[in-house]
């Protein structure tokens, strides 16, 4: 991203329920768990993640989005790799 683009980033009204496309590979913070699946809450949308490590909570991981329901703002994805941790 160029410096000019950095100044222009965010000049929009962003939805509280962001949507993604199957095939997207995104970086997210794991925010919780549902059974043995990791959960990433992105705004008020939810991504369930298969194959994440058991201690993935509060880590930053890369996920391949497999399915996405734009009505319910929920989807599923597959864990690719851990790329970072919480800021604290």
């Amino acid at each position: 991203m160029s410096r000019f683009e950095k100044f222009l980033a965010g000049w929009s009204l962003r939805s509280s329920t962001p949507d993604y496309e199957p095939g997207d590979v995104i970086e997210v913070m794991v925010t919780g768990a549902e059974g043995d699946r990791a959960i990433a809450r992105i705004g008020d949308s939810t991504l369930r993640i298969e194959g994440a490590p058991g201690d993935a909570a509060d880590t930053r991981i890369r996920v391949a989005v497999e399915t996405w329901d734009e009505t319910a703002h929920r989807g599923t994805g597959t864990y690719r790799e851990t790329v970072g941790e919480s800021a604290f």
Binding site: M1, G10, L13, R14, S16, Y20, I26, R60
Partner: peptide, 13 residues
């Protein structure tokens, strides 16, 4: 309230 300027972690690193 409006989401102006809101960015999520997947948006950019």
């Amino acid at each position: 309230i409006t989401g102006f300027g809101r960015e999520y972690i997947p948006d950019r690193i």
